[in-house]
Simulated scan of single mutants.
Amino acid sequence: LDELLLGHELPVAVFSHYRDAARTTTSWTPFCAYSPEWVALTEGRAAGAQVRFIDLPAWHPAFEGRSNRYADAEARYVWATVRLRDRFGVDCADALWDRLFEAADPPDPDTSPDPDGGDALAERLALYFDVLRGDAGADPGDRAREEYMAGWVRASLAEAGGRPVLVVTGGFHRPALRALVEGPLAGTPDRKEGLPEVPRPPADAVAGSHLVPYSFHRLDAFTGYQSGMPSPGYHQDLWENGPLAAGEALVRAVTGRLRARGVPVSTAALIGARAAAGGLAALRGHTCPARLDLFDGLAGALLDEAVDEPLPWTRHGRLRAGTHPVLAELIAAGRGDRTGRLHPDTPLPPLVRDVTERLAALGLDFSGPVTLRLTEPSGRERGRLLHRLRILGVPGYI
């Protein structure tokens, strides 16, 4: 935790790796400023709270086979999502989330007992995930994770002695954790439960975790990150500056990207886009234009020809090849171009440290074009290092 909170420029990620005689696995756990886990870590530390991770390690066998995330619960998840999409008139799960939570109307401070809207939002989130989970069971991996997390929650409640305990977890796990924590065993007065033991890799395994820089490009659901939110750059502006400023920043970014590529964007088109976004927001019951209102308004004003397939933000997943260039620029503008940077005191993975040291020793900083003179020993040495990076396929250098 101390290493994670050194003072990095977000986004960053925890890269975990594991290898033994039977299996090899790697994973990335990214953090950006508005990630609930990151907010819990930073605000918890600032408040003087005891902050802990409670899930199984990323290399644990419980995480194997994540292509079907919820196994037995998948059918119910699909059924519930389709029903909710039909009820709210949206095209995909991302649009449903925007409609229910991101673009939800704020409470009236004159009439609401909770002016910040926290209670109402918590109730809405709880109901949403209760509907998605229902009484369907998770697969063995998720059951193992939930039992382990529940052990941490029960132990923390006992340790807190009446002080509040906040659990930040994926919404799918919430109903199961409540049942495991509030069940009959949890209410037994004589029940004693210490903190769960953190699993360790087998002695013959090679495993570890390191912090690495991350980027909005890799966070974006439109580039293939299944658990990511679409348009992380827009959501960063939304988190920092609110919906009006985020919308203005998105329009400016779209305009700048298109004009840089030689696509004319007239003032009249921008006025039309703004009017369309405002009209859509009013039609959809939003107090100000939300992400999809802005995208739809911009597409309607900037596209001067028909497109052969639905707009990219009407479905979840990677941007398809052949997407209209204007739509591709809209997606790129919403994504943003931010790349994280680690604090100088962050320990580096062995390969990264070795590559960094070798590049520095040969004066290869890539701040500009590099010319190699293969007739000179130093040029040949630099060339050999670059060929090694290319053969190994090290990202960032090929």
Results as ranks from 00 to 15, higher is better:
Leu185Met: 05
Arg353Tyr: 05
Arg145Trp: 01
Glu193Asp: 06
Ala47Glu: 01
Phe101Gly: 02
His173Gln: 12
Asn241Lys: 13
Ser67Ala: 15
Phe129Gln: 03
Pro349Glu: 11
Trp59Val: 12
Leu292Lys: 07
Leu5His: 05
Cys32Ile: 02
Leu6Ile: 10
His173Glu: 11
Leu258Gln: 05
Asp142Glu: 14
Pro202Leu: 09
Arg218Lys: 03
Phe15Asp: 12
Leu177Phe: 13
Phe63Leu: 11
Ile331Leu: 15
Leu180Thr: 12
Val12Gly: 03
Asn241Met: 08
Leu283Pro: 01
Glu376Val: 10
Ala205Gln: 00
Phe295Ala: 12
Pro369Gln: 06
Val168Asn: 00
Glu381Val: 03
Gly134Pro: 04
Ala260Glu: 15
His316Asp: 14
Glu329Ala: 14
Gly285Cys: 12
Phe31Cys: 00
Leu10Phe: 03
Arg163Trp: 12
Ala126Thr: 14
Leu219Pro: 01
Leu185Val: 14
Pro243Met: 01
Thr371Lys: 10
Pro107Gln: 05
Leu157Met: 13
Lys192Gly: 09
Ala282Arg: 06
Gln236Leu: 15
Glu64Leu: 14
Ala71Asp: 07
Leu294Cys: 10
Arg145Pro: 00
Thr339Ser: 04
Arg76Pro: 09
His173Ser: 11
Leu319Tyr: 12
Met229Ile: 09
Pro310Tyr: 05
Ala120Tyr: 00
Glu159Asp: 14
Arg315Ile: 09
Gly363Phe: 11
Glu240Pro: 00
Asp94Ser: 15
Val265His: 10
Glu147Asn: 11
Arg52Ala: 15
Met229Val: 13
Arg382Thr: 00
Phe295Arg: 08
Leu41Glu: 02
Leu386Asp: 09
Ala155Asn: 13
Ala22Pro: 09
Tyr214Val: 04
Pro395Leu: 06
Asp20Trp: 07
Ala58Ile: 01
Ala144Ile: 08
Ala138Thr: 12
Thr371Asp: 10
Leu180Asn: 11
Leu100Thr: 06
Gly396Ile: 13
Glu64Ala: 15
Val370Ile: 14
Arg390Gly: 09
Ile391Lys: 09
Gly118Lys: 03
Pro232Gln: 04
Pro61Cys: 09
Leu362Arg: 15
His217Lys: 13
Gly383Tyr: 06
Ala260Gly: 15
Cys92Gln: 13
Pro312Tyr: 10
Ala277Val: 02
Leu219Tyr: 03
Ala246Tyr: 07
Pro230Cys: 01
Gln226Asp: 01
Tyr214Cys: 02
Trp28Ile: 02
Val78Met: 11
Pro175Arg: 03
Pro213Ser: 08
Thr375Asn: 05
Asp304Arg: 10
Glu74Trp: 10
Leu185Asp: 13
Pro57Asn: 00
Leu6Arg: 11
Ala360Thr: 15
Gly396Cys: 11
Val78Gln: 15
Ala176Gly: 06
Leu330Trp: 08
Leu292Trp: 12
Arg353Gly: 14
Gly194Phe: 08
Trp239Ile: 01
Asp105Ile: 07
Ala281Phe: 05
Arg384Phe: 04
Ala179Leu: 03
Pro349Val: 04
Gly118Trp: 04
Thr24Asp: 13
Tyr214Asp: 07
Asp345Val: 04
Ala321Ile: 05
Met229Arg: 12
Val355Ser: 07
Leu311Lys: 08
